[in-house]
Design a protein around this nucleic acid. Structure first.
Lengths: 98, 98
DNA sequence: TTGACATGCAAGTAAATACTTGCCTATTAT
DNA sequence: ATAATAGGCAAGTATTTACTTGCATGTCAA
């Protein structure tokens, strides 16, 4: 049971186009149910669930069970962390404001 | 021969920890040869080459052949594009400066 | 010009990934 | 109560991925 680093879960979650699409779909309309999310992807509900599981593991999506429905919410914080660790660091040095 | 979108190559390239390590190693010291890069990873030279091929496909690394050596250079531009497309867009709305 | 060094190319393999099908459970509406 | 709805769980499969081993080629130094 080797611990998988956060960065790994995060980049793995982002590596699949269907999962990135789910992020876009949630960004357009947060709080959708599983079935609503399924309408945007050409695969079975179970496959979508598996993608969402990875997004949850990466902490990019949080869910709330409400009655028989499951609502999905976007969490942009891990994306910010990618920025700080992997993008700002690699920026070409900009001219410092004078 | 379906065309693979750039975003896909980019996120796939970033999905592997060895490849992200290569980016860090190059960031610390740009222009290293293949053998130099190999010293930082616990795998065969050929495996490292394969990782670098993916980084090149994603346009994150450019190479120059010099004599019998191959020099590797980091290109941060695609990371900026990730920021614009996938991070800025998802930022929690910030208070507008008044 | 011969040997050592730096890299390229190709085929094989084990594990991970992205699905599928099939069935089960919980909640709601009639 | 019953049926339809929303979702969970698990096992099977085809493809992709991350390596390996083995060998070939180009460059440089002695």
């Amino acid at each position: 049971m080797a611990k998988i680093p956060d960065a790994d879960l995060l980049f793995k979650a982002l590596a699949d186009p269907s999962r990135r699409k789910l992020l876009d779909v949630l960004h357009a309309h947060d709080g959708q149910t599983l079935n609503e999310l399924c309408e945007h992807l050409d695969m079975t509900r179970q496959a979508v669930t598996q993608h969402i599981d990875l997004l949850e593991a990466a902490n990019l999506v949080a869910t709330v069970r409400q009655g028989r429905e499951k609502l999905h919410f976007l969490n942009p914080v891990p994306l910010q962390q990618i920025y700080e660790r992997w993008i700002a660091k690699f920026e070409k040095p900009r001219l410092k404001a004078l």
